[in-house]
Structures are given as C-alpha cells and as structure tokens.
Amino acid sequence: MRLKTIKFAFIKSIPVCAGYIFLGMGFGILLRNAGYGVIWAFCMSLFIYAGVMQYVGVNLLASNASIITTAVTTFMVNARHLFYSIAMIARYSDTNKYNPYLYYGLTDETYSLLCDCEIPEGLDKGEYLFYVTLFNHSYWILGGVLGNILGSVLPFSFSGVEFSMTAIFVASFTEQWLNNKDHLPAITGIVSTLTCLIIFGRDNFLIPAMLIITAVLLIFGKKRGEL
C-alpha cells in the first residue's frame, strides 16, 4: 500500500525532477561563487525551499543585507504563496498529519502539479500528496548540493533543461483548459499578467497581477451570482 503510494507519487513528480535538479544546481553554483560551501546549500534548500528566493538570497548574503531588508524582500518575492495556500485549503483539508508539510512545500511547481491532479484510486490522499511534495523537495536539495560540489566542471551542457518549468505550467494550463467549461479564470490570468508585465516591467509585475486577477475574479463572481 505504502509502496504503491510512493511509486505513483514518484511518477507524478518526474516532470519536476529535471527542472529542479538543474535550477537547484544553478543556485548551488551561484552560492559557491559567493563563498558558501555545501552545508549552506543543503540548509538553504532544505529550510527556505523557494527557487527564486534562494537566487535572491545569494545576493542578500553576499551584500550582508540587514534582517529587515531580508524579511521585506522575502515577503515581496514570496507573497504569491499566500494565494496558492488559499487555493489549496479545500484540496489539503483532511490530510491530517501531512497537512503542515504540504503547505511548507507548496512551491510554484508543486502547486501546479497538485492543484488539479486526481488521486490514484485506492490511495490515501494525504500520503500521496505528501510523497509528491517530498520527492520535489528532495530533487531541489539534491540539485543545490550537486551544483555546489561540482561547480562548473560538468562535461555536458544541460542548458535548456530549465524549460521543463515552463512546460509544467503550459501542460497544467492546457489540461485545466480542457477540463473546465469556464475559461474566464484562465483568460483573466493571461490578460492581467500580460498587462501588468507591460506596465510594471519584468521585475515587479507579479504582485499587481495577482491583485488584479483576484479583483477581476471577485467582480465576475458577484456579477454571475457565484458569490
């Protein structure tokens, strides 16, 4: 039973594997160049476990940033997770002891992998979601550690593997489009984000995009009487 759960969870997590190991390695190399060894890479990937934030974190460490700056920056970069958590409250209910870790490991990729997936028949939902999250977390840590150790001595160029991240989102988007009759949320997402990208520039558009998406969805919800 448990073995079967682990097997299904592993298969589910494979798309994240290549992307996380590659991106994790990028982080590990960056951290090494900033003068931090493998223990640091391991601890950061274990405890922070947020891709973009750890890249930013290398800069914070290198520039010896203040704690306040660190806290504010982290909040700005990761505020989107508030939205993922809200979206997952129903999904992650009745997962019992696994519940805190599921939220702890709710990254962009884990979110899009799990937000609409079906639980294979006969498996315990909490346990399945837990192992998918745990596998993803392990890939990320592995990548960070490998990158930090191996540095730039790799024999083969893996450049382009990072596209698997984009592919995860595109596949998830397509699948949701096929499953949902109502395409308003998807269209709202694209239009709002593109608009914010043009207005706010590529470094600052995520938070405004989320606020606008939420506002638009609430307005439409009210209009259609779904609220």
Partner: peptide, 19 residues
C-alpha cells in the same frame, strides 16, 4: 472557497507568462 475554485487556472496562466 470561490477563489480556491477559480484561482488555480488564473495562477497557472500567470506563471506561464512569468516564465
């Protein structure tokens, strides 16, 4: 719970654009 229903599709769309 309404947002939980509609947000996933929007957020995945947003992340695609982000990439």
């Amino acid at each position: 719970s309404y947002l939980g229903n509609v947000l996933p599709a929007s957020i995945v769309a947003m992340l695609t654009v982000y990439c």
